[in-house]
């Protein structure tokens, strides 16, 4: 068997499983955050979360497949191990980058939502004392 093909056979399923695992972890653990951002609107959160999960699959698996298209010719097992580890490292870095970017977006967004919430409360506050004094 061609060593290039063997390397693809090792690389592709392993990276597939990794990407799916990471995406599902994000999907599960991102839900509470999104519930907070969307004020507990559960149907909307689940819909958005599912669409994001599929988008995550498409982009990550697409990138993994795209990387396979351009490997150098592999002649010996030694070269194969080196190439494999380099490509796996690249995928791991890409996944980590996307992951941290995801967390950053959630954090920034929740901070903006919180600031807006406080601002609207302050706007509403001058009226509340009057209403409280009436009874």
């Amino acid at each position: 068997m061609n060593l290039n093909l063997l390397a693809y056979l090792l690389f592709f399923p392993a990276m597939l499983a990794l990407a799916v695992g990471v995406a599902q972890t994000c999907h599960r653990n991102g839900r509470p955050w999104m519930l907070r951002l969307f004020n507990g609107d559960a149907p909307l959160v689940d819909a958005t979360n599912n669409i994001l999960l599929v988008g995550c699959y498409a982009v990550n698996l697409g990138y993994i497949a795209l990387v396979v298209a351009h490997w150098e010719p592999i002649t010996t097992v030694q070269v194969m191990l080196g190439t494999l580890s380099r490509h796996i490292a690249a995928i791991l870095f890409a996944l980590a980058g996307l992951h941290y970017q995801n967390i950053a977006v959630l954090l920034i967004w929740s901070r903006i939502a919180r600031a807006r919430h406080i601002a609207t409360q302050r706007q509403a506050q001058p009226e509340t004392p009057h209403q409280q004094q009436k009874p």
């Binding site: 061609n2 290039n4 093909l5 693809y8 592709f12 958005t48 669409i51 994001l52 599929v54 988008g55 995550c56 699959y57 498409a58 982009v59 698996l61 697409g62 990138y63 993994i64 497949a65 795209l66 990387v67 396979v68 298209a69 351009h70 490997w71």
Partner: peptide
């Protein structure tokens, strides 16, 4: 077979990324 696998991977991978971008655009 190597050419088949590499070409397929390139085309399907590129298409999957495009599809993901379209998905996010729709969202």
């Amino acid at each position: 077979n190597q050419e088949v696998v590499e070409t397929l991977a390139g085309k399907v991978g590129g298409f999957a990324i495009y599809l993901g971008v379209m998905l996010f655009l729709n969202l």
